[in-house]
Amino acid sequence: MDAIDEKIIAELTRNARISHAELASRVRLSRNAVRQRIERLERQGHIAGYTIVRQPKDSEGDVVSALVLVYRQDRMRGGEVLAALKRIPEVVICEVLSGDFDLMVRLEALSLERIRSIWEDIAQMPGVRDTVTALTLSRVVDRPRAGKGSTA
């Protein structure tokens, strides 16, 4: 991947419905060149899919989020835990950590009940020794992540 590919991915992250013509003007390529690059990025797995993000039905539009810190039974052979977490749609981030905890999992769901249900599922997974969970009370900073090599 080069800097132009990174810019294409950054633009698609901001707006996955952007037209090839608009994207081409933003990255200074022809529409056909952008289309070919997107197809290559999809084949290579850099773009794994497009998704719909629905707003919750409540009047506030708030999503309940939580951080779950996970201790695994075996840090080196805990792949089944990672595979199971990847299958939970409300898991928006899962990172392997150094230090005391093995994994940091960020959950975003439409209700506290759904967060509790997912937490119970995680705690009962084979290979999970213990968890520590913290609910998000408020979000102070919420900015899109810049891609590698991005000038934004």
Rank of each mutant, 00 (worst) to 15 (best):
S65V: 08
R26I: 06
E22Y: 02
P56C: 09
G149Y: 10
S138Q: 09
V140A: 12
T131H: 04
V34A: 14
V91Y: 06
V96D: 03
E11V: 05
R37G: 02
V105S: 03
R114Y: 06
L112I: 10
I4Y: 04
L97D: 03
G61S: 10
K57I: 07
L103M: 07
R31L: 02
R143N: 05
T13S: 13
T51P: 00
L29E: 04
V53C: 03
R40H: 13
A83W: 04
A16T: 06
I8K: 00
E90N: 08
G49S: 13
A83C: 01
Q36C: 05
L110S: 04
R28P: 02
S19K: 07
F101S: 08
C94L: 00
I8N: 00
I38Q: 02
V140F: 10
M125V: 03
I38M: 13
E90T: 02
A123V: 02
L67H: 14
I93C: 06
E108T: 05
E120S: 06
G127W: 07
R143H: 04
S117M: 02
S25T: 15
L41V: 11
L107R: 01
E80Y: 03
G45C: 09
G45I: 09
G127V: 08
S111E: 07
V105F: 00
T133S: 13
V70S: 11
R40I: 09
D74H: 13
E95R: 15
R54L: 14
V140P: 01
L82H: 10
R43D: 14
I47S: 10
Q124F: 00
D2G: 15
N32H: 08
D121R: 12
G149N: 13
R145T: 12
E42T: 14
R75P: 07
I8A: 00
A16R: 14
I4G: 04
A83E: 14
T136K: 09
D102S: 07
S65F: 08
L85G: 10
V132R: 15
D5T: 04
K57Y: 06
M125D: 06
G49V: 12
R114I: 04
N15S: 11
R31S: 12
A123T: 03
G78V: 02
I18A: 07
S19C: 03
A146F: 05
D62R: 15
S30G: 15
T13P: 00
V68T: 12
K148F: 07
I8D: 00
S111D: 07
A16P: 14
S59M: 12
L135N: 10
D100G: 07
V91M: 09
S19R: 06
L82W: 03
E60L: 14
V53W: 01
S111P: 07
P89Q: 10
R129W: 05
D62G: 00
F101R: 15
R26C: 07
G127S: 08
K86S: 15
M104V: 11
E42A: 08
R54N: 09
D142M: 05
V34C: 10
R43F: 06
L107S: 06
I118D: 01
V68S: 03
L137N: 07
H20E: 05
V53H: 13
M76Y: 11
R26P: 08
L135G: 11
A134M: 11
R129K: 15
D142N: 13
L12M: 10
L112M: 12
L23S: 01
L137A: 14
A16I: 06
V105R: 01
R77W: 03
R75S: 15
M76L: 14
G149S: 11
